[in-house]
Design a protein around this nucleic acid. Structure first.
Lengths: 196, 196
DNA sequence: TCACGATACGGGACAGTGTTCCGTTTTGTC
DNA sequence: GACAAAACGGAACACTGTCCCGTATCGTGA
């Protein structure tokens, strides 16, 4: 679990009132700054937006990854929950996988700089990777397994590898002439007709 | 040819002897440092390795991209020349494309940090993009066009987009459990069975 | 209500990086 | 050998992430 989790969301009383207030302000500020300047925006900018000192950020979110996780937790949870639902509602597991990857792409692409962070090996981002591995990889693996069971794709594709790959495709941005969603689809399509 | 190609007795005498010497030392130093610390290694490190001041780097290579281009020029040229050759020697254009992308992946993956640079939009790397667009994209486009003409893939895939995508896949590294080459193959395979 | 200890705060300090400026050195030529 | 142009090196500046420390605030027990 991320260190940011402690005292963040549900019922925790150990923190002081001003601390909770600041944490809330930081989440709001970070969300706003991430939109305009990307998830790698200077810490000072986020601190200024929240009206706190820089040290306060590190007090609440030891690493940048903790802050990112906290900001996007809701969307990631929603993405995780979408997996089984898509599997249930789609014609085939492969179709569900395709749709889920689409949603993943949409999520990543709309968060400026997030794709680069997903690919980064900087230990500073370990908490983010841990969170993704915890919440998203199992969902993706479930979709892959279902597609294998249905005979749609050969076995052997690891979910983590696929998600990293899709992350890499998204890191190309979404400028005109570069369509990460289509490319991710190409990748998932390619899964279907491989003999590894 | 690169300005580093010295000994060309013919027309050019524009640079001073020490300048040529330093440029050569810089190329050698950069090549060495890129291997150990990646293409985004601190300029100071490269300067130190070459035994020159930092300003000397900027004098010879205004941007980091210029330095990268100079260091890898030979390999890129070789890659560019491999395109037509593969097209000639392979069973089908699509096979040639696959092999060429393989070579591209091998090139990128073995240059620590290069993939990230390919994806970056930092204007600092514009010279690198320009060089790639100039030398590699046309080769890739030729392979794509041939595959289209042979009816192996549908038209509409831009070479630049494909190469950026492959670059993105390579940015995932080449740790155990992540195989950029296989993923790139998946992508190229996916090209074959699409109806856009 | 008020004092007091713990908690949290803020801004400055430090370290590392890219990039540029400027006084000094080297080079090539007359 | 002198001299101007070319090139050099290192210091200087700007910017960032990160941490430290003196100060302010909060919550509690009297």
């Amino acid at each position: 679990m991320s260190t940011a989790e402690r005292g963040a969301g549900s019922g925790s009383q150990p923190k002081r009132a001003d601390a909770r207030r600041n944490q809330e302000a930081l989440l709001e500020a970070a969300a706003a700054v991430f939109v305009t300047s990307g998830v790698e925006a200077p810490m000072r900018e986020i601190a200024a937006e929240a009206g706190v000192g820089t040290a306060t950020i590190y007090r609440h979110f030891p690493t940048r990854a903790d802050l990112i996780v906290a900001v996007y937790r809701h969307q990631v949870e929603s993405l995780a929950e979408a997996g089984p639902a898509l599997l249930r509602d789609s014609a085939t597991p492969h179709a569900a996988l395709t749709l889920w990857i689409d949603r993943f792409v949409d999520f990543v692409v709309t968060k400026q700089g997030l794709a680069a962070v997903i690919q980064s090996d900087d230990p500073c981002y370990d908490p983010l990777h841990a969170y993704f591995i915890d919440r998203l990889v199992p969902v993706c693996q479930q979709l892959l397994d279902a597609a294998v069971d249905a005979g749609e794709i050969p076995p052997g594709q690891a979910a983590y590898e696929l998600m990293r790959a899709v992350g890499g495709l998204c890191a190309g941005g979404s400028r005109p002439g570069y369509d990460p969603r289509r490319l991710a689809n190409l990748l998932v399509t390619g899964l279907r007709s491989t003999d590894p």
